[in-house]
């Protein structure tokens, strides 16, 4: 039941296969992010404060057109890493390269291109939308920021809503009037408004119910297929990531411990941590322990 063959043919959408060897869309080189532990004033002033690395020398290359999965448990550094990738956080050391250019050195037009080209979808659908802004305004602001002419915005709004599978009447709602799944679609629409090349989705479905998770995951998959959008899916859920990604990286304690196609990672894991992770996933009836058989009622 575990074909290790290359299933990339069915997995890819927009582009035939990841362009191994071609220039990566986004490359992380020896990324390190340290935080100072909260300590006394003296230690902080003298710079002797103890530091802890949330991301510890990570290198990754995201190929154009692929869906890349980053898996790990809370605190493993995957969120920090994705914030560094989109430029919300600066790494302590290391380089982020977008289309081959170090983003720290980008200025003017090139910087704008990176800024628009890399967007993010957030986990918490409540805080990802401004509670006081109607959906229309949230999306229109994004379109305006992407440089759309004012006259083109109304038509673009409808196109965006259609793209993420939302009815246009939702435009006049406030975020709290939508369900979690609908808010997540709006979050995706807002990212798409920037016409990005890369979408980093940080736990996009973990706050949603099981019956709705698939809808969002399928939407991401579709965007990859139809638009050729490159997607980095960050999640703790190995099963979801394995289902739609062409490559998976498993992260533990700030480091990537295993990387490869999902079939290999799932069915022939090399790192003990990956094995632990796989073993911990509940398996329904198959996971019932034989020792659980309790004594009959009347002995």
């Amino acid at each position: 039941m575990s074909p290790l063959d290359d299933r990339s043919g069915e997995r890819h959408g927009g582009l035939d296969r990841p362009h191994q060897g071609a220039a990566p869309l986004l490359e992380l080189r020896d990324i390190r992010k340290e935080y100072a532990l909260r300590q006394g004033l003296l230690a902080r002033l003298t710079g002797r404060a103890e530091r802890v690395a949330a991301v510890d020398d990570v290198s990754l290359a995201i190929q154009p057109g692929e869906v890349f999965g980053l898996v790990g448990e809370s605190g493993c550094g995957k969120s920090t890493l994705s914030q560094i990738a989109v430029g919300l956080l600066a790494p302590s050391s290391g380089q982020v390269l977008y289309r081959g250019a170090d983003i720290a050195a980008l200025r003017g037009e090139a910087r704008q291109a990176y800024r628009r080209g890399v967007q993010m979808v957030f986990q918490d659908t409540h805080s990802s939308l401004n509670p006081r802004k109607r959906i229309r305004r949230a999306l229109a602001e994004a379109l305006a920021a992407s440089g759309q002419p004012r006259a083109a915005i109304p038509a673009k709004l409808l196109a965006l809503m259609d793209q993420v599978g939302l009815d246009a009447v939702m435009l006049d709602r406030l975020p709290h009037e939508l369900s979690g799944g609908q808010r997540q679609r709006v979050g995706i629409a807002r990212a798409l408004a920037m016409d990005p090349a890369l979408l980093v989705a940080d736990e996009p479905v973990s706050s949603l119910d099981v019956s709705l998770q698939g809808q969002i995951v399928n939407l991401l998959r579709e965007l990859n297929a139809r638009l050729g959008l490159t997607i980095v899916l960050v999640s703790h859920d190995l099963a979801v990531v394995a289902r739609i990604c062409q490559r998976i990286a498993v992260m533990q304690a700030g480091q990537i411990v295993e990387e490869g196609p999902p079939a290999r990672v799932l069915f022939a894991p090399e790192h003990p941590y990956t094995r632990t992770l796989i073993a911990a996933v509940p398996r329904g009836l198959a996971g019932r322990r034989s020792t659980r058989e309790v004594a009959p009622a009347e002995a």
Binding site: S211, Q213, Q215
Partner: peptide, 23 residues
């Protein structure tokens, strides 16, 4: 339908099964 939706660790690919609509 709910049981179908559960993401499982297997070699299935393609769209995830979902329940249409909202609760």
């Amino acid at each position: 339908q709910l049981l179908r939706c559960i993401p499982r660790l297997n070699d299935e690919t393609g769209p995830m099964p979902t329940i249409p609509g909202l609760p």
